[in-house]
Amino acid sequence: MRFGYQDALAYGGVTEAHPGGFSLTKRILKEEGIRPGATVLDAGCGMGLTSAYLASEFNCKVYAVDAHPLMLKHASARVKKEKLPVKVLKGNIENLPFPDDSFDYVVTESATIFTNISNTLAEYFRVLKPSGVLIATELCCEAPLQKDEEEKIKRFYKMGKIPTEKEWYSALAGLGFTNIDVLKSSSILQELQSYQVDFDKEAKTVRLDPAIEEILNEHSLLMMEYAEELGYRVFRCVKK
């Protein structure tokens, strides 16, 4: 089997790969003050850490969607162990398996960037109820990259264009999202001083496949190499 970055996260038991980590997730969601009973989609749920937090902390109805089978397995095991009413579903966030106007919130963390961004943002808009809220934490280009540098990053992560903050904003506004705010803005360089990747001890294998270790190491090296050129934003916006 030829592993990619997403496989490395799943087999390596990485619970919070997005910049800012789970501490940022908790802060943003607490400030949002999601009401009990709200319907929330965790789009690209990974190993289910955020989904479990949403259900336990806010008593809301959570749907967790991811395309990676092992991620889904870990997410299902987590919510079962914690006895949480989270529905874990296999799905492509570019073509969500839900009717229009289904959710009060869509929460997504470093998932949209690995898809066709236009298609995925349009799906978030479609499944949100009128006045529904999107909270998205996504990779952002802070400074221009040379063509070969950008291609190197895109090839490793199997992603397309890395948008700037302005480009993310334009994409969201173009779909009809309003009240677009940036709740958190940081470069990778600023994050490296305080952020530490956490691992799920139960999910992580005792001895990682060398290919998985190599991918995780390469990821760390890329983040250090382009720590000034790359960053992230947490966007909050509302469906008209």
Rank of each mutant, 00 (worst) to 15 (best):
T50I: 14
S51A: 09
A52P: 02
Y53V: 14
Y53A: 11
L54A: 00
A55T: 14
A55H: 03
S56P: 05
E57T: 15
F58Q: 02
F58M: 05
N59W: 05
C60M: 01
C60D: 04
K61H: 12
Y63P: 00
A64P: 00
V65W: 00
V65L: 04
A67P: 05
H68T: 11
H68S: 00
P69G: 11
L70C: 09
M71I: 11
L72D: 02
L72F: 03
H74V: 14
H74W: 08
A75T: 11
A75G: 02
K80F: 07
K80W: 03
K81N: 09
E82G: 08
L84M: 07
L84A: 09
L84W: 05
V86N: 01
V86W: 02
V88K: 03
L89E: 11
G91A: 09
G91Y: 06
N92A: 11
N92G: 11
E94G: 11
E94F: 06
N95A: 15
N95R: 10
P97H: 09
P97M: 08
F98W: 00
F98H: 04
D100L: 13
D100T: 14
D100R: 13
F103E: 00
D104T: 13
D104E: 00
D104C: 01
V106N: 01
V106W: 02
E109K: 12
T112R: 04
T112L: 07
T112Y: 01
T112V: 13
T112F: 03
I113Q: 03
I113F: 06
F114R: 05
T115D: 03
T115R: 07
T115F: 02
T115M: 07
N116P: 05
I117H: 01
S118H: 10
L121T: 10
L121E: 02
F125S: 05
L128D: 07
K129D: 08
V133G: 08
L134C: 01
L134A: 09
L134W: 05
A136G: 12
A136V: 14
L139E: 00
C140R: 07
C141S: 15
E142L: 10
P144M: 15
Q146K: 15
Q146C: 15
